[in-house]
Structure formats: C-alpha cells, structure tokens
C-alpha cells in the first residue's frame, strides 16, 4: 500500500497521460475509421479496394512497428513530429482499421431500403451515408466499439513502453519500480490504474448502449 500512497502523484500523472492519449487517439480512430468505412461501402470499385488495402495494412502491422515509423522514423526523415503527435497518430491509425471493419458490418446491418428511400428522396450518395445510414450504423455497433476502446486502452501501454517519450501509467510504474524496487506492488497498482480506465469505458459504453443502441 505504501508504494501507492508514496507515489500517488506519479500514478495520477500517468493515469492522466494515458487518458489523454487514449481520448485523442480515439477521435483520430473514429474519424479515420468512418472515412475508410465509407470508402469500403462505396459504389466505386477502386475506392473500395483503397479502403480494403488500408484496413488490411493497419490491422496487420504491429503497433510497435507503427510507433517506430511515426516517431524515430519520421524524425530521421526530417519531419518535426513530437512524441504526443506520433503516439496519437500511431495508436489512432492502428485502431482506425478496426473501427472501419466494425462500422462496415454496422452499415451492412442497415437495411437496403433505408438507403433506397434516401436516394429516392433526392439525397446524394454521400448525404445518404452521412445522414441516414451511418447514424444508424453507429447505433448498432456501440458494443463492438466499446471492445475496441478497451483494447485501445490496453494498447496505449505499448506507446509508453516503446521509445516515445510519454510518461503514461506503465512508464510511471517502471519509474516507481526503479526507485523502490517493489516490482510487484508497482506493477499491481499500474494494473489497477488500467482496470480503472477499462471499467470506466465499459460503464460508459453500457450507458450509451442502453440509451442509443438499435438491437437487431
């Protein structure tokens, strides 16, 4: 217990860093994921293949490799990117592929008649997707989006553990560990911090689901 109370500031700071990292990356992932899902359900074959290529690439690349590309990789190439941006982009890109896949299945679950009705009312393709199909698709995939978010909270530890200079929960645990040599306690409290985040996310998505979900 001492390990926690003596280093409360460190753990709290780490928790806050992880929260911000996950929050920002979640936004990136949802925006990109929605765009890619739109590509994947479009009428045009080339656009569909571009979307497919995107998903297959970012779903199959290890996050650690992406992080090495976005941080030291781009910096060596003369791009002035900071640790935060690199971490958020890598985690966001990685997760966006999963979001795109989930949303695509959500779009498939919206009945074809909805789309046709929209088109016959004079909406364009994009407007139908944006105003009619996607809002319903989002509401069917709240559950899976929750699992993706939880996976993302856990994956955020990879960002802190690799070279990106972000002092997230895991990084703080390592700092506490090297200061106190209480390995088990330091990592136990770090695990509790992650659990706090995942449980909060679970509760939040349960709430959203109860309020907005369309059950099919």
């Amino acid at each position: 217990m001492d390990v926690l109370t003596d280093n409360l500031d460190d753990f709290a700071a780490g928790l806050w860093v992880t929260t911000r990292l996950v929050g920002a990356a979640f936004l990136v992932a949802v925006v990109l994921g929605t765009l890619v899902a739109a590509l994947r359900v479009s009428e045009s074959r080339p656009l569909r293949s571009v979307g497919g290529l995107y998903v297959e690439t970012f779903r199959n690349v290890p996050l650690l490799v992406l992080l090495f590309i976005t941080f030291p990789g781009l910096r060596r190439g003369g791009v002035d990117i900071n640790a935060w941006t690199a971490g958020i982009i890598a985690l966001g890109l990685y997760t966006s592929a999963y979001v795109a896949e989930v949303l695509r299945s959500g779009v498939a679950a919206v009945s074809q008649g909805q789309r046709e009705a929209g088109l016959s009312l004079g909406f364009g393709q994009v407007a139908v997707l944006r105003r009619i199909v996607l809002p319903q698709a989002f509401r069917t995939v709240i559950g899976p989006l929750g699992s993706i978010t939880i996976a993302m909270i856990k994956n955020s530890a990879i960002v802190g553990a690799s070279i990106v200079a972000l002092d997230d929960i895991l990084k703080e645990a390592r700092v506490v560990n090297s200061a106190t040599f209480q390995t088990t306690e330091a990592f136990f409290w770090a695990a509790v911090c992650y659990l706090l985040l995942t449980l909060t996310a679970t509760a939040a998505f349960r709430g959203l689901e109860a309020r907005y979900a369309i059950r099919r």
Binding site: A157, A191, Y194
Partner: peptide, 13 residues
C-alpha cells in the same frame, strides 16, 4: 484486462 506489455515487463523484471 491487463495490458500484455505490462504482464511481459512485470514477468521479466
């Protein structure tokens, strides 16, 4: 519910 990297690091340390 524990990040894998945390498990690996803990076991190693």
């Amino acid at each position: 519910n524990i990040p894998l990297i945390l498990l690996i690091l803990y076991l190693a340390l």
